Computed example of a mutant assay.
Amino acid sequence: MWKSGFKWMFLVIGTTIGAGYASGRELWQFFGDESGLAIMLFAILFSLCCYVILKISHENDSTHYLPVLRIIVGEKLSYLYDGMIMIYLFTTTVIMLAGSGATLQAFHLPNWWGVLLIVIPLVLIFVWDIKGVLSLNSIILPLLIVGLLSLLLMFTIQQQLSFLPELDKQRNWTAAFPFTALNILPLVAVLGAIGNQTKSKGEIWIASIGSGLVLGVISYLYNNSLIQISDEVLLYEIPLFAILRHYPYVMFLFITILLWLAIFTTAVSGTLGLITRIRSMIKAPLWLLAACTLTAMIPLTKIGFATLIEYLYPLYGLLNLYVLSALILYPIINRYKVGQK
């Protein structure tokens, strides 16, 4: 149970910690000053949503997200959100490809090198189907979490920052809702594809609470660090580099590799959600579907990493608020229906 629980937890975290999150750009877009309470609310809401999605996926033995989506938003709205999820997964995976290009630009290498560097292994990982994705996450994610937490703790201690928020200054608490909503659709897409592989409610609880706790702690430390260097953040397309400039080049190199791995795991998760849905309509190997889909994405990476996040993420956060509401209310409505029977 514990082993499976951590496996799903890493899949959830890998889906969430991508180019936008690990780079700091996504956190800075939604949080900033007076956001300690918002981040705490996000962690709670995120855990609840993970539990509901995994529970529905498990009970319906799902292999792609559409059956799960129908239960969450209803038959009629599921068609609208099905289209939205496919567009969302497509555009956010484009953001991951652009993020890989932006990461290599930090080493003064051409942007397209970074795009190719992520596209080729993305196709190869799907030769091993979903098992390849799960094996990859179980190796990369522990390293990524430890590396990111270590950097943020070092920066917090060196800059003598407070670990506790000022409770009387929390005016940005409402940011928790669009930020959680932003991360809901990829969870529905990815966790809907593994419903037939979950075995017990225990592993669902471990995955849900564990992922919410880990993401809550990282989000708080990260946001707290970015607040201290807010003037420098504006100068960087990837805010994480504003923190790394305070450290030796070896640290910069190590964390940049971790950032790229975070981008890669989210690109894998996004591609997985997209191509498992496509495979329910077109019977073909996952690697072939991945190759065709990623080829179509490459031209769109020219738009730029920061620009894509600035406009698309807040829009998706607002559009997904209905799904977030449906997930929060699901346990109450479901219990009421059971009671009526």
Rank of each mutant, 00 (worst) to 15 (best):
S4A: 00
W8R: 00
W8M: 05
F10V: 02
F10A: 03
F10D: 07
I17Y: 09
G24I: 10
L27G: 06
Q29T: 10
F30E: 13
A38I: 04
A38Q: 04
I39G: 02
F42K: 01
C50H: 13
K55S: 13
I56S: 03
N60I: 05
S62H: 05
H64V: 13
S78G: 11
Y81C: 04
M84S: 05
M84N: 04
T93D: 03
V94R: 09
S100T: 15
S100C: 12
T103N: 08
H108Q: 11
H108I: 02
P110L: 08
N111A: 00
L116K: 10
L116W: 14
I118R: 09
V123A: 02
F126V: 05
F126D: 08
V127R: 04
K131P: 00
K131T: 03
G132H: 02
L134P: 00
S135N: 14
L136N: 12
I139L: 10
L144P: 10
V146P: 03
L149G: 04
L151H: 05
Q160Y: 14
L161I: 13
L161R: 09
S162Y: 09
P165V: 01
P165F: 08
K169D: 01
Q170C: 06
R171M: 13
R171D: 14
N172S: 13
P178W: 08
F179D: 02
N183W: 01
I184A: 12
L187K: 12
V188T: 11
V188C: 11
V188D: 11
G192V: 09
I194Q: 00
W205N: 00
W205L: 06
I206Q: 01
S211G: 11
L213I: 15
L226G: 06
S230D: 11
E232R: 10
L235D: 08
E237L: 03
I238D: 03
L240K: 07
A242W: 12
I243T: 07
R245C: 03
M251Y: 07
F254Y: 13
L259K: 01
A262P: 08
I263L: 10
T265Q: 12
S269F: 00
R277L: 14
R279M: 07
A290R: 08
A290F: 02
A290G: 02
C292K: 01
T293N: 05
I298E: 06
G304D: 03
I309D: 12
E310N: 15
L312W: 06
Y322E: 06
L324I: 06
S325M: 13
I333K: 15
Y336C: 10
K337A: 09
